[in-house]
Amino acid sequence: MAAFMCSGMRSISKSKFAAKKLLQQYVRASKLEPYIRISFCNLTVMQSNPSYKYMSTGVDLKNVSCRTEKQIASGVNFVSLRHKSDSVINESHIINEDSDQKEDKKEEKEKEWYQSSTFKGVAAVTMSSLTVGSLAYLMHVQGEPVRTESGEIIVDEFSGKWNENFSRAIQRYINPSREQLLPDPLQAPYYQPPYTLVMEITGILLHPEWTYETGWRFKKRPGVDYFFSKVCPPLFEVVIFTSEGGMNADPLVNNLDPHGAVMYRLYRDSTKYVNGHHVKDLSYLNRDLSKVIMIDCNEKSFQFHTRNGLKLKKWTGDNDDTTLIDLANFLQVVGSSGVEDVRTVVEYYSRFDDPMGTFKENQRKLEEEKQRRLAVASSQDQKKSWFWRK
Rank of each mutant, 00 (worst) to 15 (best):
Y348M: 10
D225T: 11
L285F: 01
A2N: 15
N308V: 00
E112M: 07
C232P: 00
K220C: 08
S177R: 09
A188N: 13
I153Q: 08
S74T: 02
Y114N: 11
L135Q: 03
E347D: 08
R178C: 12
S15T: 06
S167P: 00
K16G: 05
Q332D: 14
S65F: 03
R168T: 07
F359T: 03
I72L: 15
K370Q: 11
L138C: 11
Q192A: 11
K219W: 03
V141R: 10
Q171S: 15
H140W: 13
A169M: 03
I325H: 09
G260F: 05
V333S: 10
T271H: 05
S51M: 06
S385R: 14
L43T: 12
V155L: 06
K390T: 10
K291P: 01
G8R: 13
A73N: 12
S159M: 14
D318K: 09
K384I: 13
F302H: 10
F228T: 00
D98H: 09
G246A: 14
R172E: 03
G309W: 01
R373F: 08
R372M: 13
K300C: 05
L61C: 12
I201D: 01
L130S: 07
I12R: 10
K53E: 09
E157R: 14
A73Y: 08
K230Q: 13
V342Y: 05
K105D: 14
K300G: 04
K14C: 06
K384V: 12
T271P: 04
E69R: 14
R172L: 10
D225C: 03
L182N: 09
P355E: 02
L366Q: 05
E299D: 15
R287T: 02
Q332M: 08
V141Q: 09
L282P: 01
Y114H: 05
N319G: 06
P50D: 08
R37H: 12
W162D: 13
R28E: 15
N49T: 09
A29T: 13
S13V: 12
N248F: 04
I154H: 01
M199D: 01
L256Q: 01
E209D: 07
T196P: 02
Q171Y: 12
D321E: 07
G8I: 10
N254C: 12
R373M: 10
L130Y: 05
R28N: 05
D381K: 13
V141C: 07
S87Y: 08
S56E: 11
Y195Q: 02
Q187N: 11
N275A: 08
L32M: 10
I94L: 11
T322C: 11
E108S: 13
L205N: 02
V27P: 00
T196G: 04
N362I: 01
V122A: 14
Y273L: 15
Y349S: 02
L312M: 10
I201P: 02
R67D: 11
